[in-house]
Design a protein around this nucleic acid. Sequence first.
DNA 1: CTAAGTTAGTTGACATTTATCACTAAGTGA
DNA 2: TCACTTAGTGATAAATGTCAACTAACTTAG
Lengths: 231, 231
Amino acid sequence: MTTYDNDALKPIATVDLAIFSLAPAGLSVLLVRRANAPFSGEWALPGGWIHIDEDADLEGAARRVLKEKTGVETPYLEQLQTTGSADRDPRGWSISIVYIALLSADDVTEGQDAMAEDAAWRPIEGEGAGLSLAFDHAALLKEALGRIRSKVEYSSLPGHLLPVRFTLSELQSVYESLLGRKLDKSAFRKRVAEADFLEPVEGEMRRASNRPAQMFRLKDAQSLVLFDRRI
Amino acid sequence: MTTYDNDALKPIATVDLAIFSLAPAGLSVLLVRRANAPFSGEWALPGGWIHIDEDADLEGAARRVLKEKTGVETPYLEQLQTTGSADRDPRGWSISIVYIALLSADDVTEGQDAMAEDAAWRPIEGEGAGLSLAFDHAALLKEALGRIRSKVEYSSLPGHLLPVRFTLSELQSVYESLLGRKLDKSAFRKRVAEADFLEPVEGEMRRASNRPAQMFRLKDAQSLVLFDRRI
DNA sequence: CTAAGTTAGTTGACATTTATCACTAAGTGA
DNA sequence: TCACTTAGTGATAAATGTCAACTAACTTAG
């Protein structure tokens, strides 16, 4: 085993985030416009160097970046993957640890003031492959989308994109929009009940010109519940 | 965004591997005894610095370490997770990108000469939580075991631990031993047939003092096939 | 040569689970 | 009071899993 006699032999390490929310237009990702070289002026996933004097660990670094860009402190946060190669950054051998964050619709509306000026929500169109982003961020975003789409099939993931309180019908629409197909109401409710990640907000109903609907909230806003079978 | 004016501000980055095989005693992991500080003399997962002049990318670094320790070049290899914190290595802020590798029984027997002298196979007992390893490697190993055990439920993973050619009954035993429960022969064969990751080796049979069994091999020795439902 | 023993591989009956779709419930507004 | 809309539940058909019996193909003992 060799040692790093020379720090110049160390790779560069950054933490990058794929931050998702449900804008009215559907699933959207937060992008920032780069101010400096390389790729100055181009859009990229929010991210930054690890600050070894400030960040206790990788997840701490991810939370710091998230707070800087959105003002949100306690979202759903999950490590996606790590890429690293000699040529993904013109400045040298670099590593990117990528996290996925899901923001509730309430986080987005409440956090509008706190949001960084260089940041913007971009709706995902189709497979989301069409975007041109700095570094290898288009590929990273594609991976993140793949992970999200796959987890919708067998987890409570969509619950983290809604407002804090929502009805079962609203939850079902989010599943349907992320999956791109209709679900049966009865089967959907059976799955949700079994998975046991919701609790009713007692006495609170969504009222419209029809039968009122019971409102629910996630039992745990930070964690994902996996289903036994597909939704 | 800040820049690294000083390389001393960069974290240390290593690639570590949880390399598994099926020794006669059951699932086993390859450990190496550390020759240098820190944790000199203690057992650890095989790993090493990223060599920015030699490794093209992270997976390349993982393959290099794997070859150094086992002589094997083309195993099943999968990125598990990345940990990084200020205190996991006494030398400073450090990142470890952890890979899981699965070696076929043939790899192990053929590669015995090529295996590094400081390395040894250690059988996993129970949950594998009892081992005391350098750094946070005990926790990393536990994560790796969790990933493997969970993937056995819905993937072709056990096929990568057997010799290149094997019978369906042998495959079923490996599933059973990793899952810790018996499976129904008929249901098992239905799943395996549906998942379509095996091909028969025409004319080749396992002979014993009973009816001969058809031998099979993986259609693709590097990739995992996921099932629609649990095994 | 034959019968007993062993494991491979298949088949079918039955129980359980899951999908599909129709139904009842509870509100609004004309 | 009736038409309309969405919420929520139940009933039946289809699919799937479980269990165990069955046939097949070999070796070995007598």
